[in-house]
Design a protein around this nucleic acid. Structure first.
Lengths: 206, 206
DNA sequence: GTCTTGTGTGTACAAGTGTGCACCACATAA
DNA sequence: TTATGTGGTGCACACTTGTACACACAAGAC
């Protein structure tokens, strides 16, 4: 057999994957039981405790893993950015594709953002705040929107994240719909973000 | 004893209130059991079936009740609107107050919007769409934003709802915070909606 | 080699779960 | 007045749940 630590990591991953699988099937994380997740991981219930204190603990680790996914997405979008004149449209397209690819992560995030325990909600919120801060620094680096003071900049970033996050909820329920519907969705999100950034550009310090 | 139908309605209400109470305590609706909700309503488990097919059925009825709450909110905001120059600021203030007053309804809505069963999500989404449609007709009645075609108008309404809905999630976690924090929140939401409507006004059909 | 350490197993138990069934009591209809 | 329909009760059943405990057995330390 392999290294001992590797074996441990393997079952740990199996447990986390089983939890995600549960969410993928349309169930809510909060209705998952230790026994169920252990069964799916092909392991006896009590073995669960070798890896996590309880299900909340597992959820927090999922959030951590999720943060890696989000950061990778951010990196990809930054690299693939082709035409600066279509930043919004292209970013939206990439984002949608990424959500489809990593669907279950976004499902977990969106349901835990509103439904998880207090600690989990905190964890996800701080993750999104990190995302917003990155967005702010991007905007500043490109010297866009010099008319906005730092506070307004934060509000703008928060608004952007909020729009995308809310849209994601719709997108997740759309993933088995026609590609026409998905195109409409992309168009809608693009237009909405354009409205926002037109408004931000027109903002006066008044 | 009272009328028989009244008695029935009373326990029915007791069951629904117990479910909301569960949510109010920070639990997720999906982790509620028939036995638990019956116990809280002071009734034997099997009595539950005299009123609802299952918990999903109860949740759908909660959504219906919620729709009444939302429509009343809409009515209030329309009536109390004082200064047309501060529509956004005043509406936000009223909304926040309303959320604080009906906190548990919004908790239930926000957690079921992302975490409920498919049917429940549908029900809530269509409720929000109704809300968006009302907003569109309000905007049209006041002849604001004549530069927007119907499709863009829908996107704008959707964006407004989305911003408010997402903010509500934050607001719900803020309700026991300092009034300073709540003020900051109102300010933020106001500014964000202003950005949006400035952007919408500046939109060109290009 | 032996010893320790730690991951996974099996058993066990009390508590909680959905739900079928027979029953009761009382408001209403006759 | 009696009959009926219906909301609520109590019991029963098989099942799931969290978790304690003793154990097995292989990887790594010595």
């Amino acid at each position: 057999m392999n290294n001992r630590q590797e074996r441990k990591l393997l079952t740990r991953q199996a447990l986390m994957n089983s939890a995600l699988q549960w969410v993928e099937e349309g169930q809510h994380f909060s209705s998952l039981s230790i026994r169920e997740v252990a069964k799916r991981a092909g392991v006896v219930p009590t073995a669960f405790y070798r890896h996590f204190k309880d299900l909340d603990d597992l959820a927090l680790n999922l959030v951590d893993e999720l943060s890696l996914v989000l950061r990778q997405l951010m990196r990809e979008v930054r690299q693939n950015r082709v035409s600066p004149s279509h930043i919004i449209r292209d970013s939206v397209a990439q984002y949608c594709e990424y959500v489809a690819r990593q669907k279950v992560f976004f499902q977990f995030m969106s349901q835990s953002m509103t439904g998880g325990s207090n600690t989990i909600r905190q964890a996800i919120r701080s993750e999104l705040q990190y995302f917003a801060k990155e967005l702010v620094s991007d905007l500043q680096r490109m010297s866009l929107l010099p008319n906005l003071d730092p506070v307004m900049m934060d509000h703008l970033a928060d608004l952007t994240i909020s729009t995308v996050a809310y849209s994601t909820i719709q997108l997740l329920d759309l993933s088995d719909a026609s590609s026409q519907a998905r195109n409409d969705f992309e168009m809608k999100l693009t237009r909405q973000l354009q409205i926002i950034y037109i408004g931000a550009a027109a903002w006066k310090k008044a």
